[in-house]
């Protein structure tokens, strides 16, 4: 079972009766693969890591372009309450999603953003750690913009440790068409590499362009 890293700092959370759970919000605009990303993440946890995961998605009447988000609870015990009360992790893939969901981010939580699409203009809750990844640019360089969500998943896997690397890869490969397996694998790999580089550099998100592995994707 993977270490639920992000939970370590929130031991004093108000919902102490259900310790050992991680509340995650993945948000962006329709068409970015937000729901699929949350689904893959949940699958990695629930099927391949053998912990419990509950995913719910928020529907708007618009099929494309509108705000779109999914909630995922990962826990050692069966999940009771299915919704995010305070997010341990917010993955924001659009400015609108960031603005809408950052208030529900827990103190000391993790913020992951698509760095080219989200500008952090407002104050964050205390002790929030922020990581940014140019997921769309990386996906475009790999050949297809649609794998931006998989790049983000790789990045997520590297900086959070909510699910194991192996489970994440199995979940991705069992969720995409076989003809797209290689591209998705590359996308996941690229996300992981950038994420690990960011983590190891200990640099704030705004200075990550200085990291060679990161900068390589930016020109």
């Amino acid at each position: 079972m993977p270490e639920l890293a992000s939970r370590r700092e929130v031991a004093a959370a108000p919902d102490a009766v259900e310790r050992e759970l991680t509340e995650i919000r993945v948000a962006g605009f329709g068409g970015q693969g937000v729901i699929l990303a949350a689904q893959i993440l949940g699958k990695a946890a629930a099927i391949f890591d053998g912990v419990h995961a509950t995913m719910t998605q928020n529907f708007g009447p618009e099929a494309r372009g509108g705000a779109c988000s999914a909630q995922l609870i990962v826990a050692r015990h069966p999940v009771l309450y299915p919704y995010v009360t305070k997010a341990d992790i917010l993955v924001a893939m659009s400015q609108e999603a960031f603005g809408k969901f950052v208030p529900e981010l827990k103190q000391g939580g993790l913020l992951l953003v698509e760095r080219d699409l989200v500008r952090i203009q407002q104050d964050l809750p205390e002790r929030v750690r922020t990581y940014g990844v140019p997921a769309t640019r990386i996906a475009e360089k790999l050949g297809k913009r649609v794998v931006q969500n998989i790049v983000m998943l790789g990045f997520f896997g590297a900086v959070t440790e909510v699910v194991s690397r192996k489970a994440m890869e199995q979940a991705v490969l069992s969720s995409v068409p076989a003809s797209m397996a290689a591209l998705n694998k590359d996308a996941l790999q690229a996300g992981y590499e950038v994420g690990r580089a960011c983590l190891e550099s200990r640099l704030p998100a705004s200075e990550c362009d200085q990291i060679p592995e990161y900068a390589a994707w930016l020109d």
């Binding site: 949940g42 629930a46 099927i47 419990h52 995961a53 509950t54 719910t56």
Partner: peptide, 9 residues
Amino acid sequence: EVVGHMTER
């Protein structure tokens, strides 16, 4: 709706 749209193992 919650049970219908909720994804779990």
